[in-house]
Write a protein that binds this DNA or RNA. Structure first.
Lengths: 168, 168
DNA sequence: GTTGACTCTGTAGTCGAGTCCAGGGTTTAT
DNA sequence: ATAAACCCTGGACTCGACTACAGAGTCAAC
């Protein structure tokens, strides 16, 4: 089907910059065809142009966008946050203060989470050491649950830890 | 309904140790009635005895169990892991080596996650600083996504970071 | 002209840790 | 006698980031 009917807006494949079909984008980016369509639906990727048959065709710049998305994800951003960043980036031409603000906030959250995890680590370690001492005591079901520190947790501490449990 | 029909196994409320109905357990533990039933279904709590009318009645020891669960959760264990720990604790009477093993493994994972997050933090910081420098450059859509470091991420690094993305 | 790889849409399912609800029955206080 | 507060079951829903599938159309190769 090479002759173009009117209304045909297929982007030319011969014109120097080669266009990519979704499978190739997937292979090159490592992002999975279904995920690509999902990203499009979620507003992370612009709707690409289509071949006459309805196939998506992407320019190479989508690979940069996907690399950006992956990196942002790796940095701990949710897709929704990434979507907002991209959106802001498109409309706010000047200093993109909002974007930096998101990153700043995110970093603060990350710091908080880090502090928490370090505390958890210390508690785990203490628990292990406790168990190494207590473990051999007879008369308990196991000496761990009933006997150990963590079996009789201080309520306020547990509460404090729980606050930060926003799924990542 | 005080006269007991045959088959009645209601645990006596007068017998010194007072039994708790689910609402009271909830209030005392801070765990939420629905969550308590959910824990029961998930094998984290033994099935409690029932009143003749079918109401759950718990002994005070359930509060210890719940404190344990909460603390373990705060330490980063999933309910499934906690379930396994409790199960192991019940059947493995001697040194509960498995239990300690789980905790040890968990701590290693936590260490890994901590290292990752610290790396993320450093990258975020670098990105922010990069943006502070690049942000004012004209000619970009925003100077952030297209212009910044993270827009052209090294693939291998992104992959490396992604591996650890087990939701938490 | 037919295989086989690819693509499309749309919907449903996954996981974890619950929450919420409908439509009942029970207990307690007035 | 009746309202309020509690309890029961079973099932649906939530969120995030996908993945899987059904059923159909398209494209390149032989």
């Amino acid at each position: 089907m090479r002759e173009l009917k009117r209304g045909m807006r297929v982007v030319d494949e011969e014109e120097g910059r080669r266009m990519l079909k979704i499978g190739e984008v997937s292979r090159r980016s490592g992002v999975g065809v279904e995920a690509l369509r999902f990203y499009e639906k979620s507003g992370l990727l612009e709707r690409p142009s289509r071949t006459y048959a309805g196939y998506r065709v992407y320019g190479r710049e989508v690979l940069d966008r996907l690399a950006f998305i992956k990196q942002a994800q790796a940095l701990g951003f949710s897709l929704e946050e990434i979507r907002r960043i991209i959106e802001d980036a498109r409309k706010g031409q000047s200093p993109c203060e909002e974007v930096r603000e998101i990153v700043r906030r995110r970093m603060e959250e990350l710091d908080e989470r880090l502090r928490e995890l370090q505390r958890h680590r210390r508690e785990l370690k203490a628990t292990l050491e406790e168990w190494d001492k207590v473990g051999r005591a007879p008369g308990h079901v196991c000496g761990l649950i009933e006997g150990s520190d963590i079996g009789h947790a201080h309520h306020d501490r547990a509460e404090g830890l729980k606050r930060g449990k926003r799924g990542g």
